[in-house]
Amino acid sequence: MRVIIANILAIYQRELRSYFASPLAYVVAGIFWLLAGIFYTALLLGPDGVIQRAALIDLQSQQLGVPAPPVDAPTILLRFFLEALGFISIFILPVLSMGLYAEERKRGTLELLATSPITNWAVALGKLLAVVTFFLTMVLPLLLYQAIAYAATNPPMSVAIVLLGHLGLILLAASILSLGMFISSLTDSTILAAIFTFALVLLLWMIDSLSKSFSGPLGSVLGHLSLLKHYGNLTQGILDSSSLILFASYIILGLFLTAQSIEAFKFQRS
């Protein structure tokens, strides 16, 4: 057991260092921050932004002479912003996961890993943890925006809800990265890996609306697979065990398929 943990740690550290040494990773992080900043500003100050809407409600209540229900603009802003981060992530994450195995295959280093006394599982888990950690460091600076909004919530928003939203974001990212890692293990082209991952994630994101065109059990099963629906629940502070199970299933499925595909890759070489 100690050996396995040491192996996972070795893979984790090497992978994480290679992200911090890679210009691409910084470009991705930069774009992520830029988009997040644009969304935050738009959600707050834009024509459909939170402030405009609050002003509209105020105006309406004055005209009708009915006292308006209090509007907690910062809380709404936080929720919208978390949803926006999830949306940006589906474009950004495939770029982070595309090289996980495709790059190793291209360089021939997969042969080193496959002939070292280390299991496919340990390699896959170490890699996944590393890329999730890198994503976390991308999210950290954005907490500053959210702290400003959080300080202004009235009545004060529960910390648990904010934490739950972020847990949701991490689980969402880990699910997408895990599936992306599997797709990356199927090819030695990083571009193909990114495109296919994006297509898959988009499908899992939209499957909620697609499922409405199917009636009966099939529709409800498909609806449950939706990333959007479960992520939305978590950002609104709804802790549903089925959401946690769904995200955990995606993560484990990605790890399992990756380990299997590397094993199969060794068999089918011709």
Binding site: N7, R14, S18
Partner: peptide, 25 residues
């Protein structure tokens, strides 16, 4: 084992790479 193409991580230093290999071995 040295495969036909040496399995190297170009972004690592010689020493860092050998440390990594020693760890996974």
């Amino acid at each position: 084992y040295l495969p036909e193409t040496p399995p190297l991580y170009p972004e690592m230093t010689v020493e860092g790479f050998l440390h990594f290999v020693a760890r996974i071995k």
